[in-house]
Design a protein around this nucleic acid. Structure first.
Lengths: 286, 286
DNA sequence: GTTCCGCATGAATCGATAG
DNA sequence: ACTATCGATTCATGCGGAA
């Protein structure tokens, strides 16, 4: 099967208008957090965040198939000692827009940012908000089943603590490279808590989230040949994983630097490129 | 030190009015969850939940010391395939009431309720919303420090007692010996994710949360001799832990059956009982 | 080819200092 | 008074180099 990876350089608010209605199976994205990443993106003030995001989510609602799913990775920052409320306000506003707030997954970050403060602990989790267009959405639960946890007993004696620890962290995601070893064993369905480590000091590309995160949701909500969209692709993790899993994908980023980087890393034969100075072609469904 | 445990039988909305201003150091509670079935005793309809809770949170704001903390254990239900929004609406309304939404802890339930649904996974987490009256609240972080590396802690908890007590000579791998080494290691501050198992032990009454949950917050936000309040005490887990940790505590429940049960279980000499037909005495501060 | 050890690096947050 | 910038704090992880 020929897999297309379409990259766009431009503002998500504008580029999304070029995409046809009901054409995407999964939207997985991690938009710039409020006042975060000022150097790379502009940095949106917490008070303006909902207002900024709503036009985008309106377009996302339009391009998503009725059976599709939108996963929004986000976490509110602390302002003056309080958690900001823009994320929960966004949930309420998106429901008014027509979205269904189906579920909230938790990404439990195994290695969170260090630090010590007198009034709070380190923040070790982020939200993965699941929105849907209708109650009848596609979900392929078997694709993310995890082995039962009796493996530990058999491996405990052989492995060093270091190996044990590292294997375990991968088991939490269900996507350790040793997963092949567990094929044939009894498997169970996962929960709505994902236990992954952030990928730090990965020199090639520093992503906001580990590959295991989009991988889990791509497996869960799409099949090979489906279309995955990330309107804030950043280093392109979502598109890279989609390509590896044989899903078509669309990536958008406002930063030329990211656009160029992802273009260089993804397999060229599968790429379809769109730049602002070109005329946008019609996009077919996957 | 003489520790008082005051139990009230009655409606929290009424009983709380009897408590003096600025007299409580920590409120830890898990209120009755919303229930769609209107007939259910004690259940509040999701649409009426915020309206029902706000008068109570107003009283809680009054009785809490300016340096105190309110921990609200709650999780929204699924209604017609969607997560209800009453919890996030409650956060917004409580802020308007004057509360500061300081933090949201996650209780990651190690063994969550089993089950399978076509469109969602098992729910393995609950919210622990931290509200404060002012930005200067007491926090005793050293009381909840954990051994280095979360995996070490997890490993320790997972091991059975025999594993821990086992003579190192019997363990060819040296695993037991290494466990002992970790115990003496340096400790670090925890994160805002708590990884506790639900208690499925042989308890007569099923508690909404394990003892470890109130214990962690009681240690974190109070010192011995401080006052802990649970306006929906249920089986009295919060008060039981408070008593064990030498904190004064106040428990309220509308169900006579719970009130009687907790009264029977807590150490009688430390109890101060209040029933609706008695005149409420003045309550001293801890 | 393993195992072990050292080190850089994070979607962070606070408090102080400066405009 | 209010916002902007900066240093200090802190720890799990992956990577590279050494034994």
């Amino acid at each position: 099967m020929e897999i297309r990876t379409q990259l766009f350089h431009g503002d998500a608010r504008e580029v999304l208008k070029q995409l046809p209605d009901d054409s995407v199976d999964l939207i997985f994205t991690s938009p710039p957090y409020a006042d975060q990443r000022k150097k790379t993106y502009g940095g949106i003030h917490p008070d303006e965040y909902v207002e900024w995001f709503l036009p985008i989510s309106a377009e996302l609602l339009r391009v998503l198939k009725p059976t599709g799913t939108f996963i929004l990775n986000i976490k509110e920052k602390v302002v003056k000692g309080e958690r900001s409320t823009y994320v929960i306000e966004l949930i309420l506003e998106m429901r008014r827009q027509g979205w269904l707030w189906t579920e909230e997954f938790i990404w439990h970050k195994k290695n969170c940012y260090p630090g010590k403060w007198p009034n709070r602990f380190r923040d070790a989790w982020e939200r993965l908000l699941q929105f849907n267009k209708s109650r009848k959405f596609h979900m392929y639960q078997e694709a993310v089943m995890v082995p039962v946890c009796d493996w530990a007993k058999t491996r405990l004696r052989k492995l060093s603590e270091t190996d044990l620890k590292r294997d375990e962290s991968k088991v939490g995601s269900g996507f350790g490279k040793r997963i092949a070893n567990w094929i044939g064993r009894e498997k169970v369905y996962p929960t709505n808590v994902l236990h992954l480590a952030t990928e730090c000091s990965n020199k090639k590309h520093s992503a906001a989230f580990p590959e295991g995160l989009p991988e889990w949701f791509i497996r869960l909500f799409t099949r090979p040949g489906d279309v995955v969209l990330d309107p804030f692709m950043g280093s392109g993790t979502t598109n890279m994983v989609a390509q590896r899993l044989h899903r078509h994908s669309i990536g958008i980023d406002i930063k030329k630097e990211y656009y160029d980087m992802v273009r260089a890393e993804l397999e060229p034969v599968k790429l379809v490129l769109f730049e602002p100075n070109e005329s946008y072609g019609a996009l077919g469904n996957g």
